[in-house]
Simulated assay, not measured.
Amino acid sequence: MAEPFLIGDRMTGGYGGADILHGCTVAVDKGEIAVIVGPNGAGKSTAMKAVFGMLDIQSGAVRLNGEDITRLTPQARVAKGMAFVPQTSNIFTSMSVEENLEMGAFLRRDDISGTIEEVYHLFPILKEKRRQAAGELSGGQRQQVAVGRALMTRPTVLMLDEPTAGVSPIVMDELFDRIIEVARTGISILMVEQNARQALEIADKGYVLVQGRNAYTDTGRALLADAEVRRTFLGG
């Protein structure tokens, strides 16, 4: 079998103290959505940050399109086509919506106007509010700015850490719809999500982590149908 487009393979590591990840593997294929779920403290965000190079892993490897990128800095990974949207502090609040998008294209040397229009097509409310300070927007709109800014790099992989944290169920559904649209353009989506049931409904692949280890790995649909997963992690 061909290796996934992006894989964090048997990663062990943490933030310098005791290891948080223990042989953890997460991966995503081209144009697919992979979701990392699990209880609080399971190492979900740590796994995501390890894949993006924000912490050193003691063992294991990260490979993108067959290339070992384990030792690359996060900035070098962005240049390779990875984009990461952290859960908090993910926009410039004093800048306008459009300035935030322009900042997302800082590595590019070509015309970015077409990509800005693509972001506005995906998130029409941002076009309407493009001159407004991003800090004045609602929580859901801020998340749209953060995702839009990441898309300005024209990534092959979009990584989202808790994209629906703190937003209403209606806004969550809308964000998930947009994430599906992004994946349909061929971009691989790897995301950590607290709203596990809803996230698995849109996931091609799901990873349930417990204490930094893979507890269950399957398609989103199969995990939702698994009685043990439902009982233990999804509230029945």
Results as ranks from 00 to 15, higher is better:
Q87S: 13
Q87Y: 11
N90I: 01
I91C: 01
T93P: 15
T93M: 11
S94P: 00
S94L: 10
S94R: 14
M95F: 13
S96Q: 05
S96I: 01
V97F: 01
V97C: 02
V97Y: 02
E98I: 06
E98P: 00
E98C: 01
E99I: 05
E99L: 05
E102I: 15
M103D: 08
F106R: 11
D110T: 14
D111V: 09
T115S: 14
I116V: 15
E117Y: 12
E118H: 10
E118I: 05
Y120C: 00
H121E: 15
F123G: 00
F123L: 06
P124Y: 05
P124D: 01
P124I: 04
P124L: 08
I125N: 10
I125Q: 14
L126H: 04
K127R: 14
K129L: 11
K129M: 09
R131V: 11
R131F: 07
A133E: 14
A134D: 07
A134K: 03
G135Y: 09
G139Q: 09
G139E: 08
G140V: 08
Q141W: 07
R142I: 14
Q144K: 14
Q144R: 14
V145C: 03
A146M: 08
V147W: 04
V147M: 15
R149P: 00
A150S: 09
A150C: 03
M152V: 04
T153R: 07
R154N: 13
R154K: 15
P155M: 03
E162Q: 12
P163Q: 12
T164P: 03
T164K: 06
T164I: 02
A165W: 11
G166R: 07
V167F: 01
S168E: 07
P169R: 09
V171S: 04
V171K: 05
E174Q: 14
L175D: 04
F176D: 02
D177R: 15
I179K: 02
I180Q: 15
A183M: 04
T185C: 03
T185I: 00
I187T: 14
I187M: 05
I187Q: 00
S188K: 09
I189D: 06
E193R: 12
E193T: 10
Q194E: 12
N195Q: 13
N195A: 11
A196F: 05
R197Q: 14
